[in-house]
Lab assay of single mutants.
Amino acid sequence: DETGKFLVLSLYDYQEKSPREVTMKKGDILTLLNSTNKDWWKVEVNGRQGFVPAAYVKFL
């Protein structure tokens, strides 16, 4: 199980638009929880879990 094993870097600021999403700032290091959807990845940032656009992050 690779859940929570990968870190990704936020390339852009992102403001959550729904309760299922999370806000991140450019340069944030996020824990990747799920990347099965090619468009939206589930991450943990600042103690919160939610989705961010996959195009806004990259693997470290």
Rank of each mutant, 00 (worst) to 15 (best):
D1M: 14
D1K: 13
D1S: 14
D1R: 13
D1H: 14
D1P: 14
E2S: 14
E2T: 14
E2K: 15
E2I: 14
E2R: 14
E2H: 15
E2V: 14
E2P: 14
T3E: 12
T3F: 13
G4N: 13
G4T: 14
G4F: 14
G4W: 12
G4V: 14
G4I: 13
G4D: 11
K5I: 13
K5R: 14
K5F: 13
K5V: 13
K5Y: 13
K5W: 11
K5M: 11
F6G: 12
F6P: 12
F6V: 15
F6E: 10
F6N: 11
F6Q: 14
F6C: 15
F6Y: 13
F6L: 14
F6A: 12
L7W: 10
L7V: 08
L7K: 11
L7E: 07
L7H: 10
L7M: 10
V8Q: 01
V8F: 07
V8Y: 09
V8H: 03
V8S: 02
V8N: 01
V8I: 09
V8G: 09
V8D: 00
L9Q: 12
L9T: 09
L9G: 03
L9M: 13
S10R: 04
S10F: 07
S10H: 04
S10W: 08
S10D: 02
L11Q: 06
L11T: 06
Y12D: 08
Y12H: 14
Y12M: 14
Y12E: 11
Y12K: 12
Y12T: 11
Y12R: 11
Y12G: 07
D13M: 03
D13W: 05
D13F: 05
D13I: 03
Y14W: 11
Y14I: 02
Y14N: 02
Y14Q: 01
Q15F: 14
Q15H: 12
Q15I: 15
Q15V: 14
Q15Y: 14
Q15M: 12
Q15L: 12
Q15K: 12
E16C: 12
E16Y: 04
E16V: 05
E16L: 07
E16P: 15
E16S: 15
E16K: 14
E16W: 05
K17L: 09
K17N: 10
K17R: 14
K17T: 12
K17D: 06
K17H: 08
K17E: 08
K17W: 04
K17V: 09
S18M: 08
S18F: 06
S18W: 06
S18T: 12
P19R: 08
P19Q: 09
P19H: 10
P19W: 13
P19V: 10
P19Y: 10
P19A: 11
P19I: 09
P19S: 12
R20S: 13
R20V: 11
R20W: 15
R20M: 13
R20Y: 14
R20D: 13
E21K: 05
E21D: 06
E21C: 07
E21N: 05
E21F: 06
E21I: 04
E21W: 05
V22I: 15
V22L: 13
V22Y: 02
V22S: 01
V22C: 06
V22R: 01
T23L: 03
T23I: 04
T23P: 06
T23A: 07
T23V: 04
T23R: 05
T23G: 09
M24C: 06
M24E: 00
M24T: 04
M24L: 08
M24Q: 01
K25S: 09
K25F: 09
K25I: 08
K25Y: 09
K25T: 09
K25P: 01
K25W: 07
K25R: 12
K25Q: 10
K26V: 08
K26D: 03
K26T: 07
K26Q: 10
K26G: 05
K26A: 13
K26N: 03
G27H: 04
G27C: 07
G27P: 00
G27A: 02
G27R: 02
G27D: 06
G27N: 06
D28F: 05
D28I: 05
D28H: 05
D28S: 07
D28P: 01
D28A: 07
D28E: 12
I29W: 05
I29E: 03
I29A: 03
L30Y: 08
L30S: 02
L30I: 08
L30K: 00
L30C: 11
T31C: 12
T31N: 08
T31R: 13
T31G: 05
T31V: 15
T31S: 08
L32W: 02
L32D: 00
L32I: 07
L32G: 02
L33E: 01
L33N: 01
L33T: 04
L33R: 02
L33I: 15
L33M: 07
L33W: 04
L33Y: 03
N34T: 07
N34L: 08
N34F: 06
N34A: 09
S35C: 15
S35L: 08
S35H: 11
S35R: 12
S35I: 10
S35W: 15
S35G: 11
T36R: 11
T36K: 11
T36L: 09
T36C: 15
T36Q: 12
T36V: 10
T36E: 14
T36P: 03
T36A: 12
T36G: 10
T36M: 10
N37T: 06
N37Q: 09
N37P: 04
N37Y: 08
N37M: 08
N37V: 04
K38D: 11
K38Q: 11
K38N: 11
K38A: 12
K38W: 06
K38G: 09
K38I: 08
D39H: 13
D39C: 13
D39P: 01
D39W: 14
D39T: 12
W40R: 01
W40Q: 02
W40H: 02
W40S: 01
W40G: 00
W40P: 00
W40Y: 07
W41E: 00
W41I: 08
W41P: 01
W41F: 09
W41S: 02
K42R: 10
K42T: 06
K42L: 15
K42W: 15
K42D: 03
V43P: 00
V43T: 00
V43R: 00
V43F: 01
V43H: 00
V43W: 00
E44F: 05
E44N: 05
E44I: 07
E44Q: 09
E44A: 08
V45Y: 09
V45Q: 08
V45T: 10
V45P: 00
V45M: 10
V45S: 10
N46S: 09
N46F: 07
N46H: 11
N46Y: 07
N46M: 08
N46Q: 09
G47W: 02
G47L: 03
G47S: 05
R48D: 04
R48Y: 06
R48E: 06
R48I: 09
R48N: 07
R48K: 12
R48G: 04
R48A: 07
R48M: 09
Q49C: 10
Q49Y: 07
Q49T: 13
Q49P: 06
G50Y: 04
G50R: 01
G50L: 03
F51Q: 02
F51W: 15
V52E: 01
V52K: 00
V52P: 01
V52A: 02
V52S: 01
V52C: 03
V52M: 03
P53Q: 03
P53E: 03
P53R: 04
P53S: 03
P53D: 03
P53I: 05
A54I: 04
A54D: 01
A54Q: 04
A54K: 07
A54R: 11
A54Y: 02
A54P: 03
A54F: 02
A55N: 13
A55G: 12
A55L: 10
A55E: 11
A55D: 10
A55K: 15
A55I: 12
A55H: 13
A55Y: 10
Y56K: 08
Y56H: 08
Y56D: 04
Y56P: 00
Y56I: 07
Y56F: 13
Y56R: 05
Y56E: 03
V57F: 04
V57W: 02
V57Y: 03
K58D: 11
K58C: 15
K58S: 12
K58G: 13
K58F: 09
K58R: 12
K58W: 08
K58N: 08
K58H: 10
K58M: 14
K58L: 11
F59W: 09
F59P: 13
F59D: 07
F59A: 11
F59N: 08
F59S: 09
F59V: 15
F59G: 07
F59T: 09
F59K: 11
L60Y: 11
L60F: 11
L60M: 11
L60I: 14
L60R: 03
L60P: 05
L60C: 11
L60Q: 07
